[in-house]
Amino acid sequence: MAKILEVKNLNVFRGPLQVLRDVSISVEEGEIVAIVGRNGAGKTSLIKSIMGLLPVKSGKIFFKGKDITNLPTHERAKMGIGYLPDDMGIIPDLTVSEMIKTGLWVSGISMDEIKKRVTELFPEIKDLFNRRGLYLSGGEKRMAAISRALALNPTFLLLDEALEGLAPIAVSRFIGTMKELKKIGLSLFAAESNVVLASRMADKLYAIERGEIIYEGDPKKIFEHEELMRIIRG
């Protein structure tokens, strides 16, 4: 299988503070890869760097074999990278269908098409299309955000703490959703602070601490490393 995303020796600073140190990761096509770590370990910085929202000091980012390190965010989006920030980036002022439209205008796919696709994933979303972002619940916000990301017709999704703050039953459902997305051909890279949930969804797992990758491999086997688990759980 080909690598859809490859990050090589990435160094990123926020002000004087180095937040990523020589980070290298890769995601294969059709794979769900998760990265775990404590708050502030560098998960969000990594996701933002991949999306082009943080400037990279050194290192390279390849997407589908192309060097995108210096590409602006919107160009990366047009190449097929979808992004769900930790707060879902819901626009309080816009209705769900308006938010979806902002993606459609870029990808060119039709509203009917996207409505069909997202109602397959979330049947209840059909009642939400005309609701404003301000009035969406936590779960509804995720549906809206995923729908908007899908409107871009991406092949790859970046998810930042997508499960945080959800009730256990909703968590299971969204892990199911991710697997659905994988089934229809998307690759996913998800940052997660809960290592148990991460290992439930991922095909491959990374762990990060103080900006450095400290684990790469089988999601199930991470639990065997006691020292590592202590660090990750804090």
Binding site: G52, P85, G89
Partner: peptide, 25 residues
């Protein structure tokens, strides 16, 4: 209008608006 809605989107969240393919600059 398209631009109006995108402006409102960017006003609320410019990172996300860029991340769905709009040139925020």
């Amino acid at each position: 209008t398209k631009l109006g809605i995108i402006i409102r989107s960017a006003a609320a969240n410019k990172e996300v608006t860029a991340a769905i393919g709009h040139n925020v600059k």
